[in-house]
């Protein structure tokens, strides 16, 4: 901060109410409104009764707060034949999420470690193609994967979807771990080899304990990504085990019956809740995760 005083730029403004500050904070305030308003609208809508919604203003706070829409969205809203609400989708998503996150992170961390410390002939080529794969539109690979899963007897099952998530999460996660492990001094790895530790010994005893923060980042990345997935869920599962996003879309965009906007908004909020909570809880780590994944990509 000392640097700023090298060039006196007139008297230092004492008040925060300078023209510059009013402009700056004014602009930021308007921007903040644009980003936060939709969330606000969703929350107030989900707490209103249908008559109030039809008559009132979407921005107005509810005159009479009701949690009925939330209850209905969770437990009785209909999608096609099922009328047990989003709860089914929620538990489906949880069941898909946990194995997908665990499996994809294990595989990617071992990949990253092997790519940095145990390079073998062709390992760099495989990694390059893997990264390139991150940019291939999913649509190109979707149908052959349907055939593969059918051959393996996993089409329409939870494990089929877990496998798909693991495969498509691999490029970005492998990159994340590779970058992390290559920042670990190579001499540490050499020291461990002299100490007689092998591939798995070094991974578990040396690298894993050092990489805890990056595991958290990877977890945040994967939980958000898999929870929010729609495309793979709709293709590779069947209605019974649809993840939450697919079920949400079916509830809200179903053409039958009268549109219950409050229930729809409650359902939408419920679906967004998991990543939102994760986002606000993890804060800086979330930012670090997307920045690490993106900048070095």
């Amino acid at each position: 901060m000392v640097n700023n005083h090298i060039v006196p730029n007139g008297p230092k403004p004492k008040s925060i109410f300078t023209a510059r500050n009013i402009m700056l904070y004014g602009t930021l305030f308007v921007v903040a409104i644009y980003y936060i308003l939709p969330l606000y609208v969703m929350i107030v809508t989900s707490l209103k009764g249908m008559p109030e919604i039809r008559l009132g203003n979407i921005f107005a706070p509810p005159l009479e707060v009701t949690f009925q829409p939330w209850v209905k969205a969770w437990s009785t809203a209909c999608t096609g034949l099922n009328c047990d609400g989003l709860s089914r989708g929620f538990w489906n998503s949880v069941q898909i999420l946990i194995p997908s996150v665990v499996l994809s992170i294990i595989i990617a961390s071992v990949n990253g470690y092997a790519l940095v410390n145990w390079k073998f002939k062709g390992s760099e080529v495989f990694f390059a193609v893997l990264l390139f794969g991150a940019f291939i539109p999913y649509q190109v690979m979707i149908y052959p994967i349907v055939i593969l899963l059918r051959e393996m007897g996993l089409m329409g099952s939870l494990w089929g979807l877990v496998l798909v998530h693991t495969v498509f999460g691999m490029p970005i996660l492998t990159l994340l771990f590779r970058n992390y492990f290559s920042s670990v001094p190579e001499e540490l790895f050499k020291a461990a080899r002299i100490d007689g530790a092998g591939f798995w010994g070094i991974y578990f005893r040396i690298m894993l304990p050092m990489a805890v923060p990056i595991f958290v980042v990877a977890m945040i990345l994967q939980v958000t990504g898999i929870w929010n997935d729609f495309l793979f869920g709709v293709i590779y599962t069947k209605p019974d085990i649809y993840p939450m996003t697919v079920q949400l879309n079916n509830i809200v965009n179903s053409v039958q019956g009268v549109k219950e906007y409050n229930v729809n908004m409650a359902a939408t909020l419920l679906t967004g809740l998991v990543p939102l909570v994760l986002y606000f809880v993890s804060g800086k780590l979330f930012v670090r995760g997307i920045a690490a994944g993106a900048v070095k990509g």
Partner: peptide, 11 residues
């Protein structure tokens, strides 16, 4: 500004 990025496209 960043929180919408945590939400899915469906939401």
């Amino acid at each position: 500004i960043l929180f919408p990025f945590a939400l899915s496209f469906v939401v």
